[in-house]
């Protein structure tokens, strides 16, 4: 299991079978505040790296969800439909979609945890 990060504050955790779990980082959930809705794609939808795959809303903000690497959606986290605040409780544990990666080479361009922490320290918006 290895986790990668984007400058737009999504994470991608890749499991031993080469599937990826995509969610938003703890920094992102704090910035949004109380999450009230997660707009998720359908199983079978395909996205290319950098595509919007959904959106996440708090009361006073909304943010697009950007897919860190190309893939096909094989599962969506249905628990978020009933309780979107799970993301506030533990953003890293409550992934949003599970994807089958179609181009694992893209992972090389993403940040690892150390790089992401350094990126946050540089005060991004």
């Amino acid at each position: 299991m290895k986790t990668y990060f984007t400058p737009t504050h999504e994470y991608l955790t890749v499991d031993s079978e080469g599937n990826g779990f995509v969610g938003i980082t703890d920094y992102a959930q704090k910035a949004l505040g109380n999450v009230v809705y997660v707009d998720m794609p359908e199983v079978g939808d395909e996205f290319s790296e950098g595509d919007d795959f959904g959106a996440i809303e708090s009361v006073k903000a909304a943010s697009d969800l950007i897919i860190p690497a190309s893939g096909e959606v094989i599962e969506v986290n249905g628990a978020l439909e009933d309780n979107p605040r799970l993301i506030n409780e533990d953003a890293m544990a409550n992934w949003i979609i599970k994807i089958r990666l179609t181009d694992p080479a893209e992972l090389d361009s993403l940040m690892d945890l150390d790089a992401y922490m350094a990126y946050l320290a540089s005060d991004p918006h």
Partner: peptide, 12 residues
């Protein structure tokens, strides 16, 4: 449901 609206979503 204001997250749909122009003052938050702007061009989206």
């Amino acid at each position: 449901l204001q997250a749909r609206e122009q003052h938050i979503r702007r061009e989206k």
